[in-house]
Amino acid sequence: MIHYFVNPYLNVFKFKGRASEKEFWYFYFMNFTIALILMFTKQFHGIEDVKDYYRIFYFIPLVSLGFRRIQDTGYCGFLFFIPLVNIFLAALPGDPKPNKYGMPRTL
């Protein structure tokens, strides 16, 4: 499960290719959980804006992974920038066959 968290950081500038549903949603919810924990514990660690720094840290890997996730469904990765459309397309199952963005991704 940790590879779902680490792989997007290793492939941070890889916007071509495909990403599985599992990879996208694990990364998204793990980072969401970490941001919530940082937000609720800011009184203990003393850094007021630590959750904002963390959001900056995971924004580019999330966009890169989002591009690859949308491409896995067979659509253009730029649709990731459209609110609500990106969530809908990210929730669609990936194309089980090779598409114009590459072979299906399995971890």
Rank of each mutant, 00 (worst) to 15 (best):
M1L: 13
Y26D: 00
C76L: 10
K100Y: 05
F78I: 13
V6C: 01
K51A: 14
V6K: 13
N11Y: 11
E48T: 13
V63N: 05
I34G: 02
S64H: 01
N86H: 10
P83W: 03
Y101N: 06
L36V: 12
R105C: 03
F13C: 04
F67W: 15
Y28F: 15
Y26K: 00
P8H: 04
N11C: 03
K14H: 12
A90P: 04
E48L: 14
P83T: 04
K42E: 14
G17P: 04
K100P: 02
F40S: 03
S64W: 01
H45F: 10
N7W: 04
F5H: 02
F88D: 00
A35E: 11
I2E: 10
T33A: 15
F15N: 03
Y26L: 09
G74T: 06
A35M: 12
N11H: 15
T106N: 10
K22G: 12
P8L: 07
Y26E: 02
V85L: 13
K100Q: 12
R55K: 09
N31H: 14
T106I: 11
H45T: 07
F78H: 12
M39W: 10
D95H: 11
Q71D: 01
R68S: 02
M30V: 15
F78K: 11
P93D: 08
H45Y: 14
R105A: 12
L65F: 04
G66W: 07
G77W: 08
Y53F: 13
P61H: 05
N11T: 08
L10Q: 14
F67M: 13
Y58R: 01
R55E: 10
D95W: 00
P83C: 02
F81S: 11
T106W: 01
I82L: 15
G94M: 10
L92C: 14
N86P: 09
F44C: 01
A35Q: 09
D49C: 01
S64C: 08
L92V: 04
F59T: 13
P8Y: 04
G74N: 10
L89P: 07
E48V: 11
E48R: 11
